[in-house]
Write a protein that binds this DNA or RNA. Sequence first.
DNA 1: AAGATAAACGGGCCGCGTCCCGTTTAGGGT
DNA 2: ACCCTAAACGGGACGCGGCCCGTTTATCTT
Lengths: 198, 198
Amino acid sequence: MIDGTPLPLVGPQSALRADAVRNRALLLEAAAELASERGAAAITMETVAAAAGVGKGTVSRRFGDRNGLLQALLDRSEVLFQEAFLSGPPPLGPGADAAARLRAFGPALLRHEHAHRDLYLAAEPTPERRFSVPARQLRHRHVALLVRAVLPGADAELLAHTLLASVDVVLVDHFLRPGASLERLEKGWHDLLDRLLH
Amino acid sequence: MIDGTPLPLVGPQSALRADAVRNRALLLEAAAELASERGAAAITMETVAAAAGVGKGTVSRRFGDRNGLLQALLDRSEVLFQEAFLSGPPPLGPGADAAARLRAFGPALLRHEHAHRDLYLAAEPTPERRFSVPARQLRHRHVALLVRAVLPGADAELLAHTLLASVDVVLVDHFLRPGASLERLEKGWHDLLDRLLH
DNA sequence: AAGATAAACGGGCCGCGTCCCGTTTAGGGT
DNA sequence: ACCCTAAACGGGACGCGGCCCGTTTATCTT
């Protein structure tokens, strides 16, 4: 397992050496600057290594591959979103009933991903790893939990995947290209839930 | 546009030269043999070119990229599936009402993709092209048509994407790994439709 | 039949991602 | 304070995909 990529909301697990911690920060900073100046496509293992003043091998060892680096880059804003639906104010966070939280989740995810769409699109994992990304797993568990509360008879795991897929970044981006609006997608989410909940 | 990859159910559009047609067939045959003998992962631009006795440039020009080659490989079985839901016997084909056709579509797609899962997983397009694959567009139009007939008030395009996503190869494969069954996924499709149609 | 033209061909080139291994260094134990 | 070991480091090597361009060849025209 690649270290230095702590799962969100889980403590450090392997005690990175001090210089490794430093280099990790340097690399993420360099990558963020590259992304904001020349777009996410400009992030390559070599350029980010050079910009941070370290060797390519260091990037590889720390983040595994290019995708791991991009995932780590996303982690900061992802954690903010996670806090919003795990412990933030209702209706997204606890305090509202499951149906209301579920209703609020779609639009919130939609807007969050859309705000960072460049990075999310660039960081789209390969098919075989798509469901292993910690952030995705957390989203899925959360939605499945809400679905279970709202539709006890349903296959919550499967339905959660379906719901999440309906607001996937890639799909959203595809819809927004021609001129569709975020509002249409939000309405789609609400309609879908309304039909599912009678 | 890459020629030699006619859209399903649309006639040829650019009159390939005779030698090009021959090489295209040679390449596809070589790729199919490679896939069956050493797995889809063994298909690289170079090995397939060598196996067919042509240069790498030829593969590149004909199929655009590795993914285009894999899509072309899938086309043969894909066309069979298309015929099944476009003009085959009910309940999948015309002759049954839209609700019954929609019910039948999920399991049919599920089983079709599962039967060719190795190739479908290998041929998974990059995010930006995911919705441009002709076969996917055809599936989507078909499902959207049925949804429009069954739920006139809904956003048929969006809902069709959601339905298709719920039986996506990558998701299905993810579910089947631990030991889930195709039956569970089929039940999920039927439950989803039942809830949507009251 | 012979020339013209557009298309196809081949294979070399470049860039990127990944792997590897000999070297260096941080950090804890004595 | 010194050493010992495990971890991190650098950067070169390799393989694959995508691209390009000088050469060959099929097909159409007259």
